[in-house]
Simulated scan of single mutants.
Amino acid sequence: MTFSLFAAIVVALSVVSIVNGATAGTTTTTWDCCEPACGYTSNLSSGAKGPVKSCSKSNGKPASDAQNACFASSGDLAYSCSSYQPIIVNSTFSYGFAGHGNTATATCCKCYQFTWTSGAAKGKLMIVQAINAGGITDVDFDIYTPGGGVGDFNACTSQYGAPSGGWGRQYGGVTSDSQCSQLPSNLQAGCHWRWKWAGGDVNTWKVSFTQVNCPSQLTSISGCTPAKI
């Protein structure tokens, strides 16, 4: 999906108009293939309408009784959707999804704008929607990036036949753009995003962020809309 530079500027300016002060944080990466925590209605932040969509093994609609693939091994299973990969708008602006915050009900489905203040992406802008939480601090963003590391849980072996520890490092994932070729073809673009758009590993890079109203480019994918701010 691509957007014109003019459209990106309009989006960025409209977001900036509701900024209420920025907070310092860091970015990490993840892709564990688990059903996101925000896929449970009970986890949604106050006023949010959802939940976040989950997918079947083949990235279709899961069965109504599907269980999180990270906590069940038989029957109908629910996974993260391949559509949660980063979306490049232009050379300095991307959309995406992330884990954010330790308490799901405080962050689920909310959106955040951040600008990197360190690393190769310094000065670049991203707007992400929180679709996961737990084990993540209130100032960090665990960006959903294929090949970004499975972390504590791994459903990628079940969904895609990934190695038992995921692709690359368990925490942080692949360490070079060439390693993205290890991933299934439908995930490789999101893996390349880190190296070709952000310019490097992304893990532990510093950002300045603020909460913003969610753009339709994200809510139309996740299926979840938070309360307006």
Rank of each mutant, 00 (worst) to 15 (best):
M1T: 11
T2V: 13
S4A: 02
F6P: 05
F6H: 12
V10M: 11
S17R: 07
I18Y: 09
V19W: 12
N20H: 11
A22Q: 13
T28D: 11
T28C: 08
T29A: 10
T29W: 07
T30C: 11
D32F: 07
E35R: 14
C38W: 02
Y40W: 09
S42R: 12
N43L: 04
S45T: 11
K49N: 13
P51H: 03
C55V: 08
S56F: 02
K57H: 11
K57I: 14
G60I: 08
K61Q: 13
A66P: 03
Q67G: 03
Q67F: 00
N68Q: 01
A69V: 10
F71G: 13
F71M: 08
F71Y: 15
S74T: 15
S74G: 04
D76E: 15
D76F: 01
A78Y: 01
Y79E: 01
Y79C: 01
C81F: 07
C81T: 08
Y84P: 00
Q85F: 05
P86D: 03
I88D: 02
S91C: 06
S91N: 14
T92F: 10
T92G: 11
F93A: 12
S94R: 05
Y95I: 07
A98F: 03
A98V: 13
G99L: 00
H100G: 03
T103V: 15
T103I: 13
C111V: 03
C111F: 01
S118I: 05
G119V: 07
K122E: 11
K124F: 04
I127T: 12
N132S: 13
G134T: 09
G135S: 06
G135E: 02
V139Q: 13
V139Y: 14
D140T: 14
F141D: 07
D142T: 05
D142A: 10
T145M: 14
P146T: 04
P146W: 02
G147P: 10
G148W: 06
G148D: 10
V150I: 14
Q159K: 15
P163Q: 09
G168Y: 03
G168R: 09
R169K: 15
R169S: 15
R169A: 15
Y171N: 08
V174D: 00
T175A: 14
S176Y: 11
S178I: 03
L183M: 09
P184F: 07
S185Y: 01
S185C: 07
N186S: 13
L187E: 03
A189N: 12
R194W: 03
K196N: 15
D201G: 04
T204R: 12
K206W: 09
V207Y: 05
N213K: 09
N213D: 15
C214K: 01
C214Y: 02
S216Y: 08
L218C: 06
S220D: 14
G223P: 00
A227C: 02
I229V: 13
